[in-house]
Design a protein around this nucleic acid. Structure first.
Lengths: 189, 189
DNA sequence: CGAATCAGTTCGGTCACCGAACTGTTTTCG
DNA sequence: CGAAAACAGTTCGGTGACCGAACTGATTCG
């Protein structure tokens, strides 16, 4: 595990952020963590990231206090990675970048996923306001729902992709059963 | 110039964004563009990025429609890089990441820079709302002001750094006079 | 004209990333 | 219990991106 690459001689706060979350794959790992992905194999299968890189990113994020590594609650004795408060504070950034991608690289037919307010199910705008009730939606009250641009579920989908085809609340565990074998390739995210 | 690295098999909108703005230095280039940096040499001196990498990033962003390359208005016949509407739409993402860095990696004494609403000069919160009047501040009405955590101006500062020690409105040209020689190292951002 | 400025390009060295195979432990199941 | 699968990483060789420094050619200035 290496230290994050430094943007030397920079005093702007954005450079500090980029040292933590600016490396390849890091923001995709955090997005999955918001979606409720928690275990090493789930991240690996869903993202199709080289496992060594995933190891490095998770360790860096844990060391930075963005993620926490802790024993799985309930049954298992396995370790899981969950967002710490410092990681949850990145939600506006993840939402803004996702919204930008939806706006300028929309799929045929419309957005791939829509973030909705869990109360009234109205979509959330790129700034985080509920378009129904007008309030700022806290991250725990965000529902991820499939949009018209989402590809239909396929046979070879990994369990994370399959689970994300159904509405799901952010920060709640996505899978209860164990994911399958490690040779499956990640497919859709 | 190479194509942006692909996050294969990903259908999430965030992956599309990361293919454009997820490469090293890219978001720092865009931040400088919001600050009013426009010329190749200004970016190079302020960021201390390898010039070949800067060439690649600017070309990628122009090709993607995030920046526009066009002749300098008024006097010069030189080319400048300015934000296109698609680039301006990235402001919420840049603001959110900058705010996160200020929150968790603040300098001694406080924030390095504060974004304010040009009307009432009240600070803008991480979600883009003016803490004074409560409205969402459009990017053109944002004032960047030095904060208590900003290092004092030094002798060797490049012109961009020096100019950013004074309040400045986003998207307006930062420098009117020509920047100095290319051997100066970037210092502070 | 001669010197300085400027926007890139070229180049060799180093390091991060990649994919695939492998290791050791834990869990599942006959 | 014992075998087999699942799981969380580690190891490894190859490739490409990034790095700093020097260089090029066009434009501008004195």
């Amino acid at each position: 595990m290496t230290l994050p690459r430094d943007y030397r001689r920079q005093t702007c706060a954005l450079s500090r952020s980029m040292e933590i979350v600016g490396e390849r794959w890091t923001l995709l790992v955090l997005r999955d963590a918001f979606y409720g992905v928690r275990r090493f194999g789930e991240f690996a299968a869903h993202l199709a990231v080289p496992r060594a890189v995933l190891t490095d990113r998770l360790a860096t994020l844990v060391e930075a206090g963005v993620l926490a590594r802790r024993p799985e609650t309930g049954t298992g004795r396995r370790e899981v990675y969950v967002l710490a408060p410092k990681g949850i504070a990145l939600w506006p950034a993840v939402r803004a970048l996702t919204a930008w991608g939806e706006e300028f690289y929309a799929a045929e037919g419309g957005p791939r996923r829509v973030f909705r307010h869990v109360g009234d199910e109205a979509p959330i705008d790129p700034e985080g306001q509920c378009t129904g009730c007008g309030t700022a939606v806290p991250v725990g009250d965000v529902l991820v729902t499939p949009g018209p641009g989402l590809p239909p579920p396929a046979e070879g989908d990994d369990p994370v992709t399959a689970a994300l085809a159904r509405p799901h609340r952010l920060l709640t565990p996505l899978l209860t059963t164990a994911p399958q074998g490690r040779t499956t390739r990640g497919s859709h995210a």
